[in-house]
Design a binder for these strands. Structure first.
Lengths: 107, 107
DNA sequence: CAATATACCTCGTCTGTCAAGGTATATTTA
DNA sequence: TAAATATACCTTGACAGACGAGGTATATTG
């Protein structure tokens, strides 16, 4: 049983930001980590992930840089900005409130 | 502070079904009740509401009938079907699981 | 008698997700 | 050694649900 697209929607960016709070990371790794963390219940599809990265960068919530891999495929790393940290806190408050509201409605 | 469209998405149908579990009702009333219940934190816009009704009826989760108002505007009532009850239980399980999963990711 | 509340509805736009496709390098397997 | 798989990046176009803006009609209130 995995999380549906429609429920996922609206949380993708927060999930990514949360992950970047721990450490800088790159697309492929973030994807794997999230799946592992949730026992495959949450999978961000690649296209979803990359479009979220674009929005986050546009908003100034993340910054990117290329890794200096001398071997293997290149990696584009992402790191969270100060604005990103603030945005994450706001997302989290929204989530707590939305969760309580929905819980209240689904008796 | 109200619930965002993107978070609402995926819960609209469940919210309506939940409301119909209590009693048959009609669009305008359902809308008002949900806002009142949540202190205006959750507002289903009319267009959203009516498109959800259509999907729910299509799926066989609700049935509709016209009220017999002799005065005032006519009302189209909705009632939940047995399949609707089952679907609601499934929605609820999904929500419980999604909630736990998202909570796990937003530390 | 105009404004507001009750009550229904539709059309078209917007946005986030995702299936499907692509590129390139490294490792494992047959 | 050739093919398959894993790592790593990316884009395009389709799809579906939420909603703004618009419409209709009746009843009440100021």
């Amino acid at each position: 049983m995995s999380i549906t697209s429609d429920i996922l929607r609206g949380h993708t960016e927060a999930i990514i930001l949360s992950h970047l709070l721990e450490q800088d990371s790159y697309g492929y790794q973030i994807n794997k980590d999230i799946m592992k963390k949730t026992d495959n219940r949450c999978e961000l599809k690649e296209a979803t992930l990359y479009s979220a990265f674009r929005r986050l960068e546009q908003a100034g919530y993340i910054r990117t840089y290329w890794g200096d891999e001398t071997v293997g495929a290149r990696r584009r790393y992402y790191s969270i900005t100060e604005e990103g940290r603030l945005a994450y806190q706001a997302y989290k408050r929204d989530w707590e409130e939305a969760k309580a509201t929905i819980d209240q409605l689904l008796k």
